[in-house]
Structure formats: C-alpha cells, structure tokens
Nucleic acid binder design. Structure first.
Length: 424
RNA sequence: GGAGGGUUAGGCUAAUGGUAAGUCACUGGUCUUGAAAACCAGCGGGCUAACGCCCUUGGGGGUUCGAGUCCCUCACCCUCCGCCA
C-alpha cells in the first residue's frame, strides 16, 4: 500500500510512475476523498473539543448539585452532529483504503521501462550451456522413463497439475530441499523457520495477495483461511503488527514450504511436466531491513539464490524485470532463469524482489530507530532460493546422459547416500 | 464438540459510569574526567502554516450528557474435559 501523504504530495509523479506498469490509473477520486476527509475532521474535532469540556463541566455541576438539564440537552444534539461527521470521515477512509489496497507499488527508478517480458533486461549470465551429442529429452520423458515421476497417477490422485514423485525422484526432491536450507543457514546467514502452510486473511492482505488476487488462491471451505501460495506470506507476516528494534535489523529468514496456486488464467500453458503445478515445493528467502540498505540487500539476496545454481552447476541468467512485468507489490525484481535443454531456453526458477515499505505498511511492520525517533516502516524483500521442482527439472535435463540416466551433481551426493547417478 | 478465563501504549500493570494512573525497557538532556546513579523530557495515530486540538483500552454495534467500566456480537489467546496424529 502506498502512503497517502506521499500520494497527496506527489500526485502527478505517482500517476506517471504507475502508468509505466501498463493499465491506466486515475487518482483524482482519491484526491477528492482525501480533501473531503480532512474537511470533515477539522469540523468534527471542534465539536469534540466542545463535548469534552462540557462533559467535565457536567461532572463538576453534578458534584455541586446544580442543574445540568440545559447543558445535557445541548450536548445531546452536539453528539448527534459528531456521529454524522464521524460517519463521513469513516466512509472516506474506508473508500480510500479500498482504493489504496488496489494500487500496485511504485517501480524503483532503476527499473527498466517496458511493457512485456520482451522488455526485460538481461543483467548477467553464468555457466556454459551443455552441448549434447544426441537430442536432449525433456524432463517429463526422462523422469517417466526412470520411473521417478508419475504424472498419470498424480492426476488420478488430485487432477491435472499434480505429480507423484517416486523412489529416487522423491529422494532427489528432499535432497534439494535439505541442500538449499543448509546452504542458506550455514553459509549465507539465514535463520530457518517452518511456518504454517495455511494463513488467515490478514496475512494475505499484508503481503498483497488480497484483496486483488483471491481467485489465484486455494481457500479453506468454511473457514477464512487460505493455503499459502509462497512462504513469503507466513514468513513476512511473522512480524505483522510489531515494532522491531533497529539493532534487530537486518533479519534473514529462510523457509521450506509447499506452495499452492490455482494458476488461474494459465490454461494451456506448461500443461506437461513439472513446470507449472498446483502444489510445488520452494525454499524461500525473506529479509527485513532498514530502508537505507534494502537495495544492497536485494543484490545480496539475489546472489544467495544464484549460489545454489552455481553449486549445482546449472547455467542461468539474471534479468531485471521491466515496469510492465513487475509483480503487484514489488518495487524492483530480478528473475533468475535456469537453462532447460529440453525446452532450449531459460526458464524462471527464482524471483527476487524488494517491496520497500509496501508490504510493511499493509502488514504494519515497523522498527524503532536507535536515536529515539518515531517508529518507521521496515523494508521487506524476498526471493526463491529456489523453486525446488524446477531445480529438479533443470538437473534432469542438464545432467541427462544418452542412455537415459542422469548424473547427480557433486554437491547433492552427500544428501543422497553418496549416489552418483540415477538409472533404471 | 463442551466448560471456564482473558485481550489497556514496546513489555508489565492500575482505574465506585466522570474522560486512561503507574512501572520497566528504550532515546535524548542535565550533572560527571568518563561511566553509573539521580533528576527532567520524549517514547501509538491523525488534523493544523503554527499555537494547539482530536483520536487510541482486540474488532463492530447498543445504552448514556458522558463507556476501559454496563449490554449485544465477532475475532483471537489461554486453561480444563472429550476426541485425535
């Protein structure tokens, strides 16, 4: 959520920057509401001051056993006026909040202007694309042939976009989760947390999934809870409605969770294989920082995610998302895309974002500056480190051998009982 | 599922229906060679050019001139019983 005061004082600039995201935004309605609200507040506060002093007077008159009928009648009518004006104020505030909750974050100045994924800017590449002496197969073919992925039974159990991992496939997924968590906790300085996999409405509103994107979420029947679409939601909300100490910052958390997404609007896309599932595993990185350091922290967080791919020997590139491709709550996002030989292209495996104070304002997460000043909103960041299913896809495709077997990356072997290769 | 208890500012904790008192922590100041102690001030949000004023006792509603306090309702937390991994 944007700061109303900032919006009021920078209306034209805010409109202009939001327009770079696509979609047309007219903020004049909110400006009117803001004006109406402030006028009502000014008049109602005069009446309230009057009421307060009159109440004291009544208490005093009663003590003295004097007549209070006249002043009490007068106060009755003032109370009614206060009620009316208070309602005007509340109505304005509700409408403004409803409006503000629908407005996406302002893109950071460094974000490239553009409309679609084609306008994203490649920042760097790492690793060499593997050359095959044969036509590389796609991960679903490799996985099914090795008997480690079962898409048919997955859909028997839960429908399309669900997969059953078997044997070494299940082990590989678990090994990846452990490998990633160990890297982030032991080498990169994150604290592991294991949050609830379903959360209440306040959490979803705090990180920006609600109220706008309810159709993308799985809701629990008969309860105002939702399955989490990413660990970002419960982990960022850990400090909702709290005031942290400046010395506590920055806070680094990492969490493994499954993620549940309806994938509304993606009909026909990536229907085959593991790329787009209703349930997938992810290891997430979340940071709470001071405003001054959040962009440095974004660079570091992105590198922490990249280290996983480097250790696994998977080639990738990093792209800076353009304004039109930016997520709702994000001010700046780097996507990390891993090379998939089966598709002969780079595919997103991580998305690292700085939300600045957008989520912190919605979730009311503050810190108290050391110098005793007023509490300020923290900046929140997060990134996948990494999407586990897609990492498994990348390993199967990049490490496949002509005979259909798959070599296990060196870094992962200690997590798989020393196994070096997956074969039939 | 049943019974009971609870929610006051960053933490803790008061308040016969008369307009939120204290305390601890924290920050700044005074004092000091320095520190501690002591003392003073600040430490939720909003409106205003400013002086100041208004709001804030989990959310919403009601009674009242006036509600932390009384009534209704919802949410969340805790304890016990039942069931259960």
């Amino acid at each position: 959520m944007l700061d109303m005061k900032f919006v009021r004082e920078n209306l034209a600039d805010v409109e202009k920057r939001l327009q770079t995201r696509g979609g047309i935004l007219d903020l004049s309605g909110i400006k009117e509401l803001d004006k109406k609200r402030r006028m009502a507040i000014q008049s109602v506060e005069l009446l309230k001051a009057k009421k307060n002093s009159a109440s004291k007077e009544i208490a005093w008159l009663k003590k003295e056993n004097k007549d209070t009928a006249r002043i009490m009648a007068e106060m009755k009518s003032i109370s009614n006026q206060i009620d009316e004006l208070d309602n005007v104020v509340i109505e304005c505030e509700l409408k403004m909040e409803e409006f503000l909750l629908q407005i996406p974050n302002l893109p950071h100045q460094s974000v490239p202007i553009g409309k679609t994924t084609d306008d994203n800017v490649e920042v760097r590449r790492h690793g060499n694309i593997p050359q095959f002496a044969f036509t590389p197969r796609d991960h679903s073919e490799i996985g099914v042939n090795l008997g480690i992925l079962d898409f048919e039974r997955g859909s028997k159990l839960a429908g399309a976009r669900f997969t059953l991992y078997k044997g070494t496939g299940a082990l590989l997924e678990r090994a990846l989760i452990n490998f990633m968590l160990d890297m982030h906790t032991c080498k990169n300085g994150y604290t592991e947390v294991l949050p609830p996999f379903m959360v209440n409405r306040a959490c979803m509103t705090g990180t920006g999934q609600l109220p706008k994107f309810e159709e993308d979420l799985f809701k629990i029947e008969g309860w105002d809870h939702f399955l989490i679409p990413t660990a970002e939601v419960p982990v960022t909300n850990i400090f909702r409605d709290e005031i942290l100490k400046e010395d506590d910052l920055p806070i680094y958390y990492t969490a493994y969770t499954p993620c549940f997404r309806k994938e509304a609007g993606s009909y026909g896309k990536d229907v085959k294989g593991l790329i787009r599932q209703h349930q997938f595993n992810k290891v997430e990185l979340v940071k709470f920082t001071k405003p001054e350091t959040s962009y440095d922290e974004l660079e570091k967080l992105t590198l922490d995610a990249e280290k996983i791919l480097q250790k696994l020997g998977l080639p990738y590139r990093v792209v800076a998302l353009c304004t039109g491709d930016l997520g709702f709550a994000s001010a700046k996002t780097y996507d990390i895309e891993v090379w998939l030989p089966g598709q002969n292209k780079y595919r997103e495996i991580s998305s690292c974002s700085n939300f600045e104070d957008f989520q912190a304002r919605r979730a009311n997460i503050k810190y108290k500056p050391k110098d005793g000043g007023k509490p300020r909103f923290v900046h929140t960041l997060n990134g996948s480190g990494l999407a586990v299913g897609r990492t498994l896809v990348a390993i199967l495709e990049n490490y496949q051998q002509e005979d259909g077997s798959v070599v296990i990356p060196e870094a992962l072997r200690q997590y798989m009982g020393g196994m070096e290769k997956i074969s039939k």
